[in-house]
Amino acid sequence: LGPKYVGLWDFKSRTDEELSFRAGDVFHVARKEEQWWWATLLDEAGGAVAQGYVPHNYLAERE
């Protein structure tokens, strides 16, 4: 699936296409579209919880 990303700060969605998340949440990014990335929010087991657009500057690649 490629690298995983972690949320740096809490983010509250403003549209139906955006995905709310908390700092520390883990994502798989499917598409990078300039300022907004289409991402899947993952649970602790790595299963998909939700999908939506997230601001790229709120995520960091997980080491």
Rank of each mutant, 00 (worst) to 15 (best):
K4V: 15
R22E: 07
S20I: 04
T15E: 08
A60T: 11
G7H: 03
L19V: 06
P3L: 11
T40Y: 13
A50F: 05
V26Q: 10
P3D: 09
G52T: 01
G2T: 13
Y58P: 03
W38M: 04
V54R: 01
E18S: 07
D43I: 05
G46Q: 04
A30N: 15
Q51Y: 09
N57D: 12
F11V: 02
V26P: 03
T15Q: 10
A45V: 11
E34F: 08
F27W: 03
F11G: 02
E34Q: 11
Y53A: 03
A48V: 12
E18H: 12
G2S: 12
A48H: 09
T40S: 08
L8E: 05
D43W: 06
R31W: 14
A45Y: 14
K4G: 07
E44H: 10
V49Y: 06
G52I: 03
Y53H: 05
E34A: 13
A23E: 07
F11Q: 02
A50D: 09
E34D: 13
L19F: 05
A60C: 10
A23K: 14
G46A: 03
E17G: 12
V26F: 10
P3T: 12
E44S: 12
H56L: 07
A30H: 15
E63S: 12
F11K: 00
F27N: 02
E61W: 07
P55V: 08
L8F: 02
L41A: 00
R22F: 12
A39E: 01
L41S: 00
T40C: 11
A30S: 15
G46L: 06
L8M: 09
V54G: 02
W37H: 00
A23Q: 10
L19M: 10
D25A: 09
P3I: 14
R14P: 05
P55R: 07
K4L: 15
F11C: 07
L1Q: 14
A60L: 11
P55Q: 05
A60M: 13
A60G: 08
T40N: 04
W38N: 00
A60Q: 13
S13M: 06
H28A: 10
V54T: 00
A48Y: 10
T15K: 11
F21C: 06
T15R: 14
L59M: 05
T15P: 01
V54Y: 03
Q35G: 13
G7D: 04
V29N: 01
A30F: 12
G46W: 05
Q35W: 12
F11E: 04
L59K: 01
W37N: 01
D10W: 06
T15A: 10
W38L: 09
Q35V: 11
K4P: 07
A45N: 15
F21S: 00
